[in-house]
Amino acid sequence: MGVQTLFQRSYNQMLMPAVLAVIIFAVLPLVGMFGLSFTDFNLIKGWGGEVGLHNFFKLADDRRFIASINVMLMLSVGGVIFQVVMGTLIAVGLEKIVPRWKFMRGIFVVPFVVPAIAVALIWLSLFTPTLSPINAFFDIFGITVPAFLTTQYGAIAAIVIADTWASFPFVMLLILAALQGISSDLDEAASIDGATKMQIFWRITLPLLKPALLMVALFRFIETLKHFPLIFVMTNGGPGRSTQATNYYAYIQTFQSSNVSYGAAIAVFLFLFAAIISFYVARANARISGA
């Protein structure tokens, strides 16, 4: 500890560049975002002065905004459930079912590196019935695959599927990491005691994974709140407004309707929402790593 006190100044010096960079490039624009939300600035009409909390009162009355929260929650909750379940199953499967097939892990990490815009375009083509090989394949058997992007829940499902595809590898990697921290002695002891593999999974592995699962779920949840390319490319927010999540609605207000200040108010709402959740992520993380 004595050494640490001695070097505290050096530590502070190491921290300084990062703190400065964060202030200039992240905190300043964020302050600007908050500032804008208390004004009336429209790209077309120009500067309308300060309006206090007016934009936030308007939010409370805005049906499209309220509906967008609903959409956002469906996309985020749906996405997180599928990603976490699938990522966990694959991680456990890689360790317990096909431990010798090392190349499998290579297959499962590939979607992780496909840029979001490419993910969106590729899945759009897969969900376009006239183009999709999936539809063509089922047509052979006379089965018509329903068009996902034209129904309210279908379009939400389509985005959840595309997001799951792009993000399960992240969950998988994190759960693989957590699994390697679990001693295999426990498994062996349990299996000698006569427990089946299923019992071992449910009674031993899963409870031990719980902290990691919670953290990855919260982390992914916040990431999904920022959905943009998938909606922008796959549905334009449609059908109707079925996939207009809050972040996308902020984009529409800012760029389509030119209401920069109102868009900023929506972003402030999202930011505060994310702040609450990231508080829990930070706490979960502090518990796990014992920091």
Binding site: G237, G240, S242, Q256
Partner: peptide, 23 residues
């Protein structure tokens, strides 16, 4: 009209919702 892009966006959403039987 100067407001058309905004009107077109929102009416377009409503019409699309009607065709897809959401409204």
């Amino acid at each position: 009209l100067p407001q058309w892009p905004e009107i077109g966006q929102i009416v377009g959403e409503n019409i699309n919702a009607a065709v897809n039987e959401i409204m």
